[in-house]
Structures are given as structure tokens and as C-alpha cells.
């Protein structure tokens, strides 16, 4: 079962690489045009010779197969923007994004799960309505605007926190406190966007469990409210929430694209955006495929987690 899911994901990845390779060829400019723009001494003949030298005069399907062969050998090429091999440019970005996303996920869950549980205890109460409205607001608000508003408030008006970057660029750098200060606003932005869906999932799952016989039995045999809710209901209600979180882990490496761009956070999302905008074909291609691979892996992970936590469910 797991093998067939992996094979399927590999097929999607391969199809995606074909499509994206084709799309890259349709983007403005090509590598030789960029060379000509950078060096006025190049003549038209030079350009033609260079095209032949790099195989750019061949049809793109042939170039795609050659690229695929090189990737299979672990050769991803050179990044134009960073003037480094693609992997060396990408590794730090991966780490930065993982740090940002893990912190945001932690904050979002820490706020959303208690709210969802409390709201589920009295469906229809004023508190429930307030939480529901908050959840709607969270899924409806544009992330980049939240980021901008936080910058306006905390960086421009109050001057408490830095507006972007990962640390203060100064002699000696910033140290731990400075790095944490740089994380506050982007983490808050990302967390605010995530809270809504977790609250709704948690609340719905808790209400769904509340009607089951085992919960009524627990009440009937005289369990206290805290024990019924936390020991009985919550353990089962966490199942669907876990699946959503596992799916989220897949998006971990590209999901913060907008937030990273607003806050100039040097992560994967921003790397993909800048490489596409800056005609850095190798970097964009690898970044996009890595993001796809992670998303696919996340959905497999979600299925596995579900099956492990709930043995009644078997993979189709």
C-alpha cells in the first residue's frame, strides 16, 4: 500500500517536473540573452555558438531528458542569482523556513486547540459565537495585509520590533535576543492565518465525539468534567486534527512564501519567488520540485499517522 502511494507520488513529481521545465522555457529571457545583456562584447555569432555549446538549440523535450538524467545523478546545476551550486543556496533557506514554520505551527496550535475545546463545551453560547467569528476572520484575512499592519503598528509607529530580516546586520551581529525579536512578527502573522482552521477542526471533532456512547458512559459512571473532556473525548477528537497538521507539514517548505516576502525572511518561499522573478532557472526548478515533493510526502504522512493512531482505518 505504502509502496503504491510512493510510486504514485513519484509519477506526480515526474509529471510536474516535465510541466515546470516546459513553463521555465516560456518565461521571459533565456540564459544566453542574459549573458548578452551582461556583456556587450558578445556578438550574434558568439550567442549562436554558446547556444550550441550548451545545447540550447535542441528541442526542449530533448533538453528535459538530459536535465532529468543529470538530476538522477544528483547534479542540480548552478544558481545564477547566488553564484553557488543550487544545493548550497537552498540548504540555509530550508533551515530558515523550517524554523519559522515550526514556531508558527506551535503558536497556532497552542492558541487554537484550547479555544476549540472550550467553544465545543457549550455550542451556541456567546463564547462559541465569538470563537466562530474569530475563526472566520482568521481564514478570511489576507496574510500579507496582516503582515503589513503588524509592521505599521509595531515597527513603524511603536518602534518595538524590527520590520524584517533575520537579524540586525551590524558589527558583531545581534545574538539570540535579536534573532527572537526578528521572529515575533512573521511568526504572529503565520500563526494568525493558521488558527482559524485548527479551531474549527478541533471544535467540530469535539462536538462529533460528544454524542458517542462512550462519552455518555463516562458521564454516567460519575467521571468529573475535566476527565471526560480531556481523557475520553479529546483523545479521539485529536485524530482528525493530527491529519490536518500532518498535511500542513508538507506545505512547511513553501507555505510561507508571502509572509517571507513581506518580512524579507530568507526562506524557501522567498527563494522560489526570487528565483522565478530573477530568471534563475536551476534554482527555481529545484525549489519548486522540492516543494512539491514535500507536499506529496506530507499527504502520505497524514495517511500513515491516521492509520497508526486509529487502527480501525486501513489505507484504501
Amino acid at each position: 500500500m505504502i509502496l503504491s502511494r510512493l510510486l504514485q507520488s513519484l509519477a506526480v513529481l515526474l509529471a510536474m517536473s516535465f510541466v515546470v521545465y516546459g513553463l521555465m522555457g516560456l518565461m521571459p529571457g533565456d540564459p544566453i540573452d542574459l549573458m548578452i545583456a551582461a556583456d556587450p562584447h558578445l556578438t550574434a555569432e558568439d550567442a549562436l555558438r554558446l547556444k550550441a555549446l550548451y545545447g540550447l538549440d535542441r528541442p526542449w523535450t530533448e533538453r528535459y531528458l538530459r536535465w532529468l538524467g543529470q538530476v538522477a545523478q544528483g547534479e542540480f546545476g548552478y544558481s545564477r542569482l547566488y553564484a553557488k551550486p543550487v544545493w548550497e543556496a537552498m540548504l540555509p533557506a530550508l533551515g530558515n523556513t523550517a524554523l519559522l514554520m515550526a514556531a508558527a505551527l506551535g503558536v497556532a496550535l497552542a492558541v487554537a486547540l484550547p479555544l476549540g475545546i472550550l467553544a465545543s463545551l457549550r455550542p451556541g453560547s456567546a463564547f462559541d459565537h465569538a470563537v466562530n467569528l474569530l475563526a472566520f476572520a482568521s481564514v478570511s484575512v489576507p496574510t500579507f495585509w496582516v503582515g503589513l499592519m503588524l509592521i505599521v503598528l509595531f515597527a513603524v509607529q511603536l518602534g518595538w520590533l524590527p520590520a524584517g530580516g533575520m537579524e540586525t546586520v551590524a558589527a558583531g551581529g545581534g545574538g539570540m535576543g535579536d534573532r527572537l525579536a526578528h521572529m515575533v512578527l512573521p511568526v504572529a502573522t503565520l500563526a494568525m492565518a493558521g488558527i482559524g482552521q485548527y479551531v474549527r477542526q478541533m471544535r467540530a471533532a469535539m462536538i462529533g465525539e460528544a454524542g458517542h456512547d462512550y462519552v455518555r458512559t463516562a458521564w454516567a459512571k460519575g467521571c468529573g468534567p475535566a476527565r471526560v473532556v480531556l481523557n475520553h473525548q479529546l483523545r479521539n477528537a485529536l485524530l482528525p486534527v493530527t491529519t490536518i497538521v500532518a498535511l500542513e507539514v508538507g506545505g512547511l517548505f513553501s507555505g510561507a512564501l508571502i509572509t517571507e516576502t513581506v518580512f524579507a525572511w530568507p526562506g524557501m518561499g522567498r527563494l522560489i519567488y526570487e528565483s522565478v522573478m530573477g530568471n534563475d532557472f536551476n534554482l527555481a526548478l529545484t525549489g519548486l520540485l522540492l516543494a512539491t515533493a514535500m507536499t506529496l510526502l506530507g499527504s502520505i504522512l497524514a495517511d500513515l499517522a491516521y492509520r497508526w493512531l486509529d487502527p480501525r482505518v486501513s489505507l484504501r
Binding site: V12, G269, L288, T292, M294
Partner: peptide, 8 residues
């Protein structure tokens, strides 16, 4: 559905 939406 499995594709990363925004980068694509």
C-alpha cells in the same frame, strides 16, 4: 490537489 499552489 497535491501541488503547492502558490509557487505553481
Amino acid at each position: 490537489m497535491a501541488l503547492p499552489l502558490l509557487p505553481l
